[in-house]
Design a protein around this nucleic acid. Structure first.
Lengths: 116, 116
DNA sequence: ATATCTGGCATCCTTTAGGTAACTGGCATC
DNA sequence: GATGCCAGTTACCTAAAGGATGCCAGATAT
């Protein structure tokens, strides 16, 4: 006779929420880009310089994805030469605590490895 | 004359921490597996049932990676038939707040999309 | 006048993540 | 004695992510 585990559905639900987040945020570059932009790098080349090792092609693709997910805003100014400016959206702020947790864990993890 | 931006190094550092975290945690399945195990699913097949859609091969691979990163412990009992038990390590607890943040954000994001 | 900056795009290529399907060997159950 | 459960493994394959390189055109700086 199988146990009925009443919280299985709840666990599955949590996992689904987690996967929703991962779907938006997954990959090597999206969060690093977000941090760079949030910290004030608004120009394409500045972002590229902040996020070490990224190529223009990847940066361009990822910025588009972030724009589609309403996390980044792209503005073009009709100056000469036309200037492009990237900023994080207000909605992006909702990611702040999560990202800070990730940064904190990464720092701790790094220290942990060095101690060994 | 280029501005010297004194916090560029600090930003780069944060991005590096973030990437350290992503390196451990990245991919579609690692965090969902961690949640399932943490919630008390200790048997291979139970984990597989909790993490909907995962195949035995992927689960097996990911569990090995998590074990190598000291987030999951695998114990084999020499009973008949031999039983295998997966549990989260104490170190894995340090990920808790981060994961909870990710679950919370995923839930919020989902609700956000439904409102539109 | 030439070198370098800007914000990218186009091609091509490699690597990795993830998925499919079939199978194993020992035990228990019907 | 056939079927099913457990904890996986193996071989093969596809799709997506990521990387390398070269290029453009307008502007500024040397």
């Amino acid at each position: 006779m199988p146990d009925i585990q009443p919280d299985n559905a709840a666990i599955a639900q949590q996992i689904r929420h987690l996967q929703d987040t991962l779907y938006v945020v997954n990959g090597k570059w999206k969060l690093p880009i977000l941090v760079a932009v949030h910290q004030g790098n608004s120009r394409f080349r500045d972002i590229q310089r902040s996020v070490q090792g990224i190529t223009t092609k990847v940066l361009s693709t990822e910025l588009k994805a972030l724009e589609q997910n309403k996390l980044v805003v792209r503005r073009v100014y009709d100056t000469s030469p036309p200037a492009v400016e990237y900023t994080t959206s207000p909605y992006c702020e909702t990611l702040q605590t999560m990202i800070l947790e990730m940064i904190a864990w990464g720092k701790n993890h790094h220290d942990q490895l060095r101690e060994k």
